[in-house]
């Protein structure tokens, strides 16, 4: 009660940030979204168009599908890393945190190019595979689903690693010892004790990845192929190429709606409180 009152009186401290967000974000976004209902004329014709033209449905389906693949792959890769970070030696923890953070200090564009260099027809991976005679022909790794997945997963890994780490670090190793003395084999104590206790971090991380993937632009544009076109690329196309602000707004509303529904589901299951913690 006391704390709340004090917070309220100091709420004016939020003003600068609130103004910035209002002017630089809410206003233009609101304006774009409103175009869905007003451009070129008032009504729902833009949403009908999304429904009628197969290309829109295909891209939206694509986007969901890609996010649905990226998410489990990222979680599976992040899990052992986060585990080592939480329960390895302090030295191991320092190194891993450093290594996971390095990409954060690097521009997304640079990382996308780096991935492209790795994956291209005569890139590092193909040279290696050819050099050791593992393949005869260079593998097509770039401008297709492989390149897109590699790019998304490498960029998004930290977003799962850190929430998972924070959940895992709170798991007392005594729980696993106790489970063992109570008759649980390592596999069973993993599934019955460890995994459930990592769920808050896991769900948080997975949601972050899923939602981020839904709205990705640079990665699919640079590493994916034409068949992996995603919703953000479509929005960009509509505006930059066709000047079609109405359809772009409608697509944005769909994207925003999907995100909102996801967060709502999350709130109902794990609770956002858990995430904020």
């Amino acid at each position: 009660m006391e704390a709340r009152l004090r917070l309220d009186r100091k709420a004016w401290l939020l003003l600068p940030a609130a103004l910035t967000i209002g002017v630089a974000f809410l206003l233009p976004v609101g304006w774009l979204l409103s175009r869905a209902f007003t451009d070129p004329q008032p009504g729902f014709q833009n949403f009908e168009l999304l429904w009628q033209r197969p290309v829109y449905m295909r891209v939206m389906g694509n986007t969901l599908w890609i996010a649905a693949i990226v998410t489990p792959v990222t979680v599976l890769l992040a899990f052992p890393v986060a585990h080592l970070m939480a329960h390895g030696s302090p030295q191991m923890r320092r190194w891993l945190i450093f290594l996971v953070l390095v990409p954060f200090w690097t521009s997304l564009l640079v990382r996308a190019f780096a991935t492209a260099i790795l994956l291209q027809r005569h890139g590092v991976i193909n040279s290696f595979l050819l050099g050791f005679g593992i393949v005869e022909e260079p593998l097509p790794l770039l401008y297709n689903i492989t390149g897109l997945l590699a790019g998304c997963v490498q960029v998004l890994l930290p977003f799962v690693i850190f929430p998972l780490y924070s959940s895992m670090a709170r798991i007392d190793p005594a729980y696993m010892r106790a489970a063992s003395t109570l008759g649980a084999s390592p596999v069973r104590s993993f599934f019955r004790v460890y995994l459930p206790l990592t769920l808050p971090g896991l769900v948080t991380g997975a949601t972050l990845v899923f939602v981020s993937t839904l709205g990705y632009y640079i990665i699919p544009a640079m590493l994916g192929g034409a068949r992996q076109q995603m919703i953000a690329q479509l929005i960009q196309d509509q505006i930059a190429t066709f000047g079609n602000w109405g359809v772009a707004g409608a697509l944005s509303i769909v994207l925003l709606g999907a995100t909102a529904v996801l967060l709502l589901l999350l709130q109902l299951t794990v609770g956002l409180k858990e995430i904020a913690r």
Partner: peptide, 28 residues
């Protein structure tokens, strides 16, 4: 440990925090 016929009580209790008391006791 899981093949030995022993029970252990830890100083930190080590009760599984995501399980009710019943589920904890039912675990073994």
């Amino acid at each position: 440990p899981y093949r030995r016929d022993i029970g252990m009580v830890f100083q930190s209790y080590a009760l599984f925090p995501h399980m009710t008391v019943r589920r904890n006791v039912a675990f073994p």
